[in-house]
């Protein structure tokens, strides 16, 4: 479990994290979203015990990250941004070092090493020095290091950065497989990742929490939520038909691919009415889809200083 209360971090006059409070329970995978410089990494560094909060508190399973730092650090597996490690060491040497310092011994040590190496498919490179590995492998070594002691809490700063699509898929699978009994925080820029692994998302910008919800609920904030998009030969004719439907708030035609999107009025479902109208007007569509909502649009809407406030 992770709990933060009014967590703050100042660098001189700059407030990087400005009073963040949240609580994450075991079984939750929390996605940490935000633009660059929003305070994601700083928050994670404080949770991992690297930086000392300027104000407020954070606790890992009840252990305060400042008061009982060692106990908190023992419970956390942490992948720092950029997955740093000791380049001159071999992968196995590095992981053995981590195992020693994490106090793993005997049978457990061997089993945990085998498990971490297996889960991240590092078997082929265990004897290579880390400096000679590709970016993807380095990242996986960092992940192996983080999960080595089977921690209760995992804090992963951009775990899939620099991985190819296949490796991303594997790492997401890995996170999901471990999610059952662990508390996991993942920071990412990649919004599709939130869908793939997280059951909760926090959007922060300028050091403040701006949204805290499930990915689905966040999507529902999008104006694309429950919108209907379709492609047909005569886009303008389609538009003329759709604007006459009562629950349709607006119809837009994409300038590039001529795709027509009909937006519903708040809380209304229009898919049935749209299909009905198209049929009764004898319009042939090539393809039609019900939109779930677009996370990237919600993200932009939340994190850019708002137009509606102006």
């Amino acid at each position: 479990m992770i709990e933060t209360r009014n967590l703050r971090k100042r660098y001189g006059d700059v407030v990087a994290v400005d009073g963040i409070s949240f609580k994450v329970e075991p079984g939750q995978v929390l996605g940490f979203l935000g633009p660059n410089g929003a305070g994601k990494s700083t928050t994670m560094k404080m949770l991992a015990g690297f930086l000392t909060p300027s104000d407020g508190s954070a606790a890992i399973c009840g252990h305060d990250v400042v008061e009982s730092a060692l106990e908190a650090k023992r419970l956390v597996g942490y992948l720092p941004e950029g997955a740093p490690s000791y380049g001159e060491m071999s992968v196995l040497g590095f992981l053995e070092f981590i195992a020693d310092i994490r106090g793993l011994g005997g049978e457990t040590r061997r089993r945990r090493l085998d498990d971490a190496i297996g889960r991240l498919s590092l078997q082929g490179v265990v004897q290579q020095s880390i400096d000679t590995l590709s970016k993807g492998f380095k990242r996986r070594v960092g992940l192996a290091q983080a999960i080595l002691h089977d921690p209760k809490v995992l804090i992963l700063d951009e775990p899939t950065d620099g991985l190819d699509p296949n490796q991303k898929y594997e790492v997401r699978g890995l996170i999901q497989a471990m999610a059952k009994d662990k508390t996991i925080i993942v920071s990412t820029h990649i919004l599709e990742e939130v869908h793939a692994v997280c059951n909760r998302a926090i959007i922060i910008a300028r050091g403040k929490v701006l949204a805290d919800d499930t990915p689905a609920a966040l999507e529902a904030r999008s104006r694309f939520h429950r919108a209907v998009s379709l492609s047909a030969d005569n886009a303008n004719a389609v538009r003329d038909v759709l604007v006459r439907i009562g629950d349709v708030a607006a119809v837009e035609i994409d300038a590039q691919d001529q795709r027509v999107t009909a937006f519903p009025r708040a809380g209304k479902a229009i898919f049935g009415a749209v299909v009905e109208a198209l049929k009764s007007n004898g319009i042939q569509v090539r393809e039609i889809a019900l939109e779930q909502g677009r996370l990237d649009e919600v993200f932009r809407q939340i994190t850019t200083p708002s137009k509606e406030a102006a």
Binding site: K45, A69, L70, K73, Y78, Y86, I98, R102
Partner: peptide, 14 residues
């Protein structure tokens, strides 16, 4: 420079 200080100081060592 390499950032490994972040790794080192988040391991359970004082």
């Amino acid at each position: 420079k390499s950032g490994s200080i972040e790794l080192l100081l988040t391991l359970p060592v004082t």
